[in-house]
Design a protein around this nucleic acid. Structure first.
Length: 124
DNA sequence: GATATGACCGCAA
DNA sequence: TTTGCGGCCATAT
């Protein structure tokens, strides 16, 4: 009997987890490629996150614009159409830019408030 | 099959 | 703060 009904496809699996991780990022907040990779259980594979987002079909319900680099900048080259598009979407959600970069300490997710809540509970 | 490219990152200098 | 470098590895040549 052939029990190989579903050949393992680690790549497809990783893709699904990455998309799921990005969908957890709340509106008005941003996260980084590396952070998404870690949340998806793929530490050190930030590049794969970029590859996956690049391949996202138009219309996918994934907030890809909330993912930026660890230095707080948009990954697309400044001046490019994609860059402006992403920046606009973020500003629409209230994410602020200073010198072409987002203050991860303020808009980064998860941020300290989130961690405080996780550790101490919502009621301080 | 070999090489180049890229929506990246952490670290050292 | 910025730059350079090794590490990562799916895709495109």
């Amino acid at each position: 009997m052939n029990r190989n009904r579903a050949p393992p496809d680690p790549l497809h699996d990783a893709t699904a987890r990455i998309r799921r991780a990005v969908m957890r990022v709340p509106r008005g907040r941003v996260t980084t490629y590396g952070s998404v990779a870690r949340m998806a259980g793929l530490p050190g594979r930030a590049r794969l996150v970029g590859t996956v987002l690049k391949a996202l079909p138009a219309g996918a319900r994934v907030p890809w614009h909330r993912v930026i680099t660890a230095s707080g900048r948009i990954a697309f080259p400044v001046g490019s159409e994609a860059h402006d598009h992403q920046r606009r979407k973020l500003e629409d959600e209230g994410v602020g830019f200073r010198g072409g970069r987002v203050d991860l300490g303020r808009f980064g997710w998860p941020g300290h408030e989130d961690l405080d809540e996780m550790l101490w509970g919502a009621g301080r």
